Simulated scan of single mutants.
Amino acid sequence: MGATVTPTGELTRAIVDATTALVMLIGEDGRILLANPAMQAFTGQPESELLGRLFWEVYVTPEDIPRARQAVGAALIGGASFLDEGTWFRGDGVRRRVSMQNSVVTDETGRPHGIAVVAIDVTEQRQREALVQRRATTDALTGTWNRGVLFDALQKQLAPGIGPGCALLFCDIDHFKAVNDQHGHARGDQLLVEVASRLLELAGPDDLVARFGGDEFVVLVPDVAASELAALVDRARAGMGLPLQGATASLPFSVSIGGAHGRPGDDPDHVLAMADQSMYRRKRRRT
């Protein structure tokens, strides 16, 4: 017996229904004309309830609606397919990140009349990528940025002609080795985390807090006048006044903080060295 011949249209629909990708056909008015079983499962709605509905009312998050509508409209006018990525609502209300291939569908005259959307849920992949990026740019213990991020930001702030300039606060925990020796490294780590936490609380939304190394932290404050530097240092020092609390006893500590101001065109290493020297001058006066 010969093989059963399946009409092309039926075969195409069978493939669309079998794929785990989220497949839809969207008309030129934005209404859903086809939704495969994977898309039905994603939205939690059967195809009969999806057909005829505007796609942005079904799964697109509010902040993405204007961009999504504009992209579809532009594709239909220009006849060009496009790749996109956005956030969709799953049927249970959970936000998921999806990667889309959007292909313009034409009629027999070549006129665009719809968009075929093939989407893949990439939420876990993007989360893994974000985790890798976070580990590469932050200090594992304190969660602050690392030296590489600090230097990149500092170069941008001091870029000749375009950077806004910045202030740098260089912070060093006094007698940190003694804390480790007398109270153990776990207590020392707790102190590092506490200092980082306080600096992050003091920092503004555009400020950058980085662990420079060991018991040293640097705070970058962008676009600030040199006349404000002393007040920034005093504010940071005041934020370190309370002792570190523990399960059985509190631990008094102090942090020496110095600062420097950099203008566009200044050498980043020089500005950092000036902040470091300012900190050590304060430390010598305390000892």
Rank of each mutant, 00 (worst) to 15 (best):
G165E: 05
A153C: 08
F176K: 06
C166G: 11
G161Y: 10
N146K: 15
L154R: 01
T144F: 07
A167V: 01
L150H: 04
C166Y: 02
L168N: 05
F170D: 04
L154Y: 05
G165S: 03
A167F: 01
Q155S: 11
T144E: 04
R147C: 08
L168G: 05
A167W: 04
L158C: 15
L168S: 08
C171L: 15
T142R: 00
P160I: 12
G163C: 06
K156Y: 00
L168Q: 03
G165R: 01
T142I: 04
I173S: 15
C166D: 03
G161H: 08
G161V: 14
N146E: 04
T144S: 13
P164D: 15
I162L: 12
V149K: 03
F176N: 09
G161A: 13
L169F: 13
G163P: 03
I173E: 11
H175K: 12
G161R: 14
C166I: 05
L169V: 15
N146C: 11
G148H: 15
I173Q: 14
L154S: 07
C171Q: 07
G163R: 12
G163L: 04
F170P: 00
P160R: 06
G143A: 10
I162M: 05
A153P: 06
G143T: 04
G143K: 01
C171K: 13
T142P: 10
G143E: 03
D174V: 01
I162D: 01
G148L: 11
P164R: 10
I162R: 09
T142Q: 00
F151W: 05
F151Y: 06
W145N: 08
L158K: 04
P164Y: 09
K177F: 02
G163E: 07
A178P: 02
L158N: 11
G161C: 04
N180L: 09
N146L: 04
Q157F: 01
F170Q: 01
R147W: 11
L150F: 14
V179T: 06
V179M: 03
C171A: 15
A167T: 01
L158H: 09
K177V: 13
V149Y: 03
Q155K: 08
I162W: 01
G148K: 12
V149M: 13
A178W: 03
D174K: 14
G143M: 03
Q157L: 04
P164I: 11
D174Y: 12
V149W: 02
H175Y: 07
N146T: 14
G161Q: 05
L169W: 06
G143Q: 08
T142K: 04
G161M: 10
D152T: 11
W145S: 13
K156R: 15
G163S: 09
I162E: 11
G143D: 04
L169C: 12
L169N: 07
Q155D: 10
H175W: 12
N146G: 08
A178T: 14
N146P: 10
H175M: 04
Q157I: 09
F170W: 14
A153D: 10
I173K: 10
D152W: 00
D152K: 07
D174Q: 12
L150E: 10
D174H: 09
V179Y: 00
L158G: 11
L150G: 05
H175G: 00
D174R: 14
D152V: 00
F151C: 12
Q157E: 15
P164G: 14
N146R: 14
D174E: 15
P160T: 07
N180G: 09
I173G: 15
